[in-house]
Amino acid sequence: MSAHLSEWTLRRLHVGELPGAEALAAQAHVSACQECREVMRGFSEAQARFEAEVPFERFAAGVERKAAPRRHGMWVAVAATVLLVVAVRPLLSSPPSPANRLKGNGAAAELRIGGEGSEQRTVMPGTTEALAPGERVRLGYTPGPHRYVLAVSVDETGAVSPLYPEEGTSLPVEEGAGTHWLPDSLVFTGAGLERVVVLLSEAPLEVEAVRAAARRAFEASGQEVGAMPPLGAGGEETHWLLRKP
């Protein structure tokens, strides 16, 4: 195989993303090498087979359907109202776990999981919790001295989804003592790990700046969402890892 270009190199050449000099050298090789030409022809044939098998209209409709919920990284559960009445009310009367407290200043963040027929549970920060199919996540906080709250999540591919808010800057915290719950419950789509981060801060944070910080942290971890360091975007952070079903 050493006499030929690897299939990966040929594939990159085929889609037109080999850098200039490399592309020229590869083209020169291909024009003189029948076997590599065959591989290139195979790519064209595979694309033609694909287009015959999956027409563009069907492709586009399917992608759009799947992109809609992921555009915001979650969907607000249709049954959120039910969860609010049936499941969340007890959350409001239960104090957050002391382990969730940040730096002893009275601030805290809490992640609670609930689903139909299953008992709710609080996830300790810094731990990994498996989500069962259909289970929803609710985020809460006790502001302490902080005035703003923001939440994002990061999936295994490094895709960052702003959760609260979806754009703009941090939300002002609610007045009053006790735990305040962010609106609606979340259902995370896809599979694998999802890191959820709540940031409580004294000044509002830009969602885009937090998103960029999360991307940097993902890269710094060697693209291992489970090993990400703090985002360092400002404010006090609480992290949880969820394993999606």
């Binding site: 594939r11 889609v15 790519f43 694309q47 287009e51 999956v54 563009f56």
Partner: peptide, 10 residues
């Protein structure tokens, strides 16, 4: 679709 569809689908 036209550039990467075939590779991803394969």
């Amino acid at each position: 679709y036209e550039t990467y569809g075939g590779s991803v689908y394969e």
